[in-house]
């Protein structure tokens, strides 16, 4: 038997892998530090990622904010804006379902809207380009909900129309 005990093969394999890992970390960090296009080792600001995942596949026509059918009892209004905007103002009875460019609408919420018994579903959003209301309306239509519309221009003209009617 030789004087120096050889390491167990499995242990030697693990040790070699760890050494490669450490060596790669050193080389990678050094190259990154030296190159002009290197990136900071720790990212401080969020990456602007836009994954077009829940893009609506359905068709949802626009509806004018002063359309009288908006205020009919069997119309279900859905607010696609973030919670802060929803809390600031929303028409009475409007359901809140914020549109997310990354996550699809929760199935349970979609099913609740589908089984609401409403004659039509009208979604309003931020009125931007793209309009979150239109995006969510298309998503809901794509999920199989019928008679889905979106408010053209979003929440702002809808609020003005509601005020003109004496609020809702």
């Amino acid at each position: 038997m030789s004087g120096v005990a050889a390491p167990h093969p499995a242990r030697a394999v693990a040790r070699d892998a760890l050494l490669v890992l450490l060596g790669s970390a050193v080389v990678g960090s050094a190259v990154n530090a030296l190159r002009p296009s290197g990136i900071p080792f720790v990212q401080k600001t969020e990456y602007q990622i836009l994954v077009p995942c829940p893009e609506g596949s359905g068709e949802a026509p626009g509806m004018a904010p002063n359309d009288p059918s908006l205020w009919e009892p069997r119309t279900l209004l859905v607010d696609a804006r973030p919670a802060s905007e929803h809390q600031r103002w929303h028409p009475q009875g409007a359901r809140h379902l914020p549109f997310d460019y990354l996550e699809p609408a929760p199935k349970a919420e979609v099913e609740r809207i589908a089984s609401s018994g409403a004659a039509r579903v009208v979604v309003f959003g931020d009125g931007g380009n793209p309009d979150t209301g239109e995006q969510l309306a298309r998503e809901l239509a794509g999920a199989g909900i019928r008679n889905v519309f979106f408010v053209q221009g979003g929440a702002e003209p809808l609020a003005a129309a509601a005020a003109a009617r004496g609020g809702r």
């Binding site: 970390a25 190259v31 990154n32 990212q43």
Partner: peptide, 30 residues
């Protein structure tokens, strides 16, 4: 292009932000 790879990692929305760049710097060399 470590910047593009960091963005790819961030898109998964799994890693904590503080580790995204470190991974983008080290992993390709491994």
């Amino acid at each position: 292009e470590p910047g593009s790879f960091a963005l790819d990692i961030a898109t998964y929305q799994i890693m904590p932000l503080a580790l995204v760049n470190a991974m983008a710097i080290v992993l390709p060399w491994v």
